[in-house]
């Protein structure tokens, strides 16, 4: 997987709609009737995506929603999820932006291999990620055994493990988004800044970051959404302990066994948060910034 321009992958739709508003010609062209062999599968595809959500809305226990969502267990899981996903997003930003910069702005042997490895968690089953994290940081893991004997400190089955698992699966989203935007950014602005006497670090902070800011924001939102939904790596590496490692997805899965109405209610909450992220991605604020950068 030789990295696609991340921002392009995520933003095609927005650029298209932006284009539509500025020039009337494509709008007319797109109004043509779709041929039946395309229209039918397209409609089916859309139904396939939307029907489960409709069912979720219909079956939700609207009457008890308030009490189910505000039950102690639900609030605990939601609060833990928000905290860990926020922490994971922060770690993604701190590590991912420099990583994207190095991938986009330098060249070194094995760079394509590094880029592929960065995208690996995207295509790998998260549960495999959890097993891999255990092999590294587990009590008998490569690094974990050292931590255990030296400091008596074990990572798995703690809140820290949740953050690590979420960061592991979310980081590629940020790196891809920022890497793509860095590689398509106009290098001449950075050159102009250097001629004015700015050091590479100053150029990065004052020119490069503002230039790719929208992609950093978009990548951060995507990372947050991915971290919030993380299940496989978390349950494998961090376990399922209420209050410390039981995030919303885990709580929903558990509730599904014996209390489906709670599961439905919690799912609604997560869906609302995801919708909020989606709206954030499409908001005037983000797309306005994207317009400046491109």
């Amino acid at each position: 997987m030789s990295a696609p321009a991340g921002s392009d992958v995520f933003m095609t739709d927005r650029t298209r709609s932006g284009h539509e508003t500025t020039s009337p010609a494509p709008r007319v062209a797109r109004r043509r009737r779709a041929p039946l062999p395309l229209l039918v599968p397209a409609a089916l595809g859309f139904l396939f995506l939307v029907a489960p959500f409709v069912a979720l809305l219909v079956r939700s226990p609207w009457g008890d929603l308030g009490s189910l969502v505000t039950s102690q267990g639900a609030l605990q899981a939601l609060w833990l999820s928000l905290r860990t996903a926020t922490a994971a997003t922060v770690v993604c930003l701190i590590l991912g932006v420099p990583l994207a910069w190095v991938l986009a702005r330098t060249s070194f042997p094995g760079q394509n291999l590094v880029r592929s490895i960065v995208t690996l968690p995207l295509v790998m089953p998260p549960v495999v990620g959890g097993v891999a994290l255990l092999s590294l940081l587990g009590r008998r893991g490569l690094l974990g055994s050292l931590l255990d004997t030296a400091f008596g400190f074990t990572v798995p089955f703690t809140t820290l493990a949740v953050v690590i698992a979420e960061t592991f699966v979310a980081l590629p989203f940020l790196v891809l988004s920022v890497d793509g935007s860095l590689r398509s950014a106009d290098l001449r602005y950075e050159q102009a800044a250097a001629v004015l006497g700015a050091s590479p670090w100053y150029v990065f902070r004052r020119v490069t970051l503002p230039l790719v800011g929208p992609s950093v924001a978009a990548g951060g939102l995507l990372s947050f959404a991915r971290a919030l939904g993380e299940f496989g790596a978390t349950i494998t590496f961090a376990g399922n302990f209420p209050g410390t490692t039981q995030t919303m997805p885990l709580a929903i899965y558990l509730a599904m066994q014996d209390d489906p109405s709670t599961a439905l209610a919690l799912s609604l909450v997560l869906m609302a948060v995801s919708l909020a992220v989606l709206i954030g991605l499409r908001s005037r604020w983000v797309s306005g910034l994207i317009g400046v950068a491109s």
């Binding site: 001449r188 602005y189 050159q191 001629v195 004015l196 700015a198």
Partner: peptide, 18 residues
């Protein structure tokens, strides 16, 4: 580049848009 003390005005000006 940053140590040279050259003043270069680019054809496209390249003002920082932010």
């Amino acid at each position: 580049v940053e140590e040279r003390r050259c003043g270069l005005v680019f054809q496209q000006h390249l003002l920082f848009s932010h």
